[in-house]
Amino acid sequence: VPVGSGPGYREPACDDLETEQAALAAVDYINQNLRHGYKHTLNQIDKVRVWQRRPFGEVYHLELDTLETQCYARDPTPLANCSVRQVFEHAVEGDCEMQVLKQDGQFSVLFAKCHSTPDSQEDVRKVCPHCPLLALLNNTKVVHAAEAALAAVNAQSNGSYFKLLEISRGQLVPLPASTYVEFAVAATDCVAAAVTDPATCKLLAEKKHGFCKATLTEKLGGEEVAVTCTMFQTQPVAVQPQPDAAIPASPAPAADQAAPAPPAAGPPAAALVVGPMV
């Protein structure tokens, strides 16, 4: 930009159609590249600047607020059909910084950095004083509930043996004393009924994922587990233009996409992981 010719960018309104189109393309990219946690939906566009790109196109620099939905990352349900996690369920928000190229009327993401944070305990308590709050994903009771629920699933499976991929949510319910947990599973090459050493079971090359919700209730002299799982159809690998730029390290605990599971320790909400990690 020649000296004295202005800032070199324009600032459309955050609710302009062009801004919203760029933001929706950005959120779509985030969800297409999520490997952990839940899909997010656009909540508010905080800031936008549009830079001319040489020789062609424009680059939208966006700051977006998102909210976690109830759809697991690999759930093929269209985002429009995914319910937003409500405050009484302990909502989770995402803060994203995105760069989206618009060229020939098409949007493609150049850069993405997101960080997710659960709502404060005070906010949840304001609308629901007795609702269970999110627990740490490595909480002993949460881990035990997921493992017990998965054991119940495998005990009843007349097909594949399933392995735990990640625990995505956990809540400790005081009355009745119970633990609510949501977790992802994947089918292995073992038959559930014939497994002797689960450690030898390998995830199928064409991964078959499932998502489970379970409640483990503490009873006198034992415990009872109720679990429901949804298995997803095998998804074709999404072919997406990938960013040229390296994605800087997120301030949030981020999980490597290649890792089989997110860290057990860390905040209750998994960090959003988008784009190729460098």
Partner: peptide, 27 residues
């Protein structure tokens, strides 16, 4: 006292360009 209705009126109608609307709820 004289007023400047054009200025006051237009200032009241123009929404702030950013941030945009909240689609669900703010936390």
């Amino acid at each position: 006292k004289g007023a400047q209705p054009g200025v006051a009126g237009s200032a009241g109608l123009v929404p702030p360009p950013c941030p945009g609307r909240i689609r669900h709820f703010k936390i």
